[in-house]
């Protein structure tokens, strides 16, 4: 198993945002998470993304306690695309340049253009000013930013909420490609029935607690 959560709780101001979560996620899984707003879904994925740590319990990744892992290396392996992401800098290029920059690597436009093609954006989009992008285009670019260096796990927080069917379809194709062809583990918060159907697992979180995991389809 890739992730193993043992009695994980996250507590803020004496309130349990997550209470006693037990969950395993296997490599290659496509897991969807649903639940009412404020139920702890985002808290769970933030913990999986090493943005916050469990206050109680143990979160193991690849057999190791997450607290023992280097957070920077970990986040490069377990990439998290937040809800309503912001774009960096002035142009699309600035956004793709960032993952190269933090790895001290030279920007490779040819490689990036292949990714752009996967979400049906032309190579000329590299020089597009970010304020000229539509909501769907912004979301596609933010997603690509997370996968330029092929993470092992991709965490998605309501990435298609508010998008039209055309944009949704493009993103669904990308997610399926990543999961099926590149064997990237997908963990996705969503309310979209189509996405829930695409996944092989579904969990519900209510009031910080895991309720009736439906397991493998």
């Amino acid at each position: 198993m890739l992730f193993d959560l043992n009695h994980v709780s996250i507590i803020r101001d004496q309130k349990h945002l997550l209470a006693d979560i037990n969950l395993t996620i296997n490599a290659g899984d496509y897991l969807t998470i649903t639940g009412p707003s404020g139920s702890g879904k985002s808290t769970l994925v933030k913990a999986l993304a090493a943005l916050i740590d469990p206050d109680e319990g143990v979160l193991n990744y690849n057999g190791q306690d997450i607290l023992q892992l280097d957070p920077i290396k970990y986040r490069r392996e377990v990439s998290y695309c937040v809800q309503q992401p912001t774009l960096f800098g002035n142009t699309v290029r600035d956004n793709f340049a960032f993952p190269y920059q933090i790895r001290k690597q030279k920007f490779d436009p040819a490689a990036v253009e292949k990714y752009l093609a996967q979400v049906q954006l032309p190579a000329s989009y590299l020089d597009q000013p970010i304020e000229k992008l539509s909501g769907g285009e912004r979301q596609r670019i933010a997603l690509l930013r997370n996968i330029l260096f092929d993470p092992r796990v991709l965490i998605l927080d309501e990435v298609t909420t508010g998008l039209d069917s055309e944009n949704k379809a493009i993103i669904h194709d990308l997610i399926n490609h990543l999961n099926h062809d590149k064997h990237i583990t997908i963990i996705q918060i969503t309310h979209d029935t189509e996405e829930i159907a695409m996944a092989n697992r579904l969990i519900h979180i209510v009031g910080g607690q895991l309720v009736d995991e439906s397991g493998v389809k």
């Binding site: 920077i72 986040r75 490069r76 990439s79």
Partner: peptide
């Protein structure tokens, strides 16, 4: 703040 968080999720070091 949001931008800092997003950069962290991409695996950026604190300075980046």
């Amino acid at each position: 703040r949001q931008q800092v968080v997003e950069k962290l999720t991409l695996g950026a070091d604190l300075k980046d």
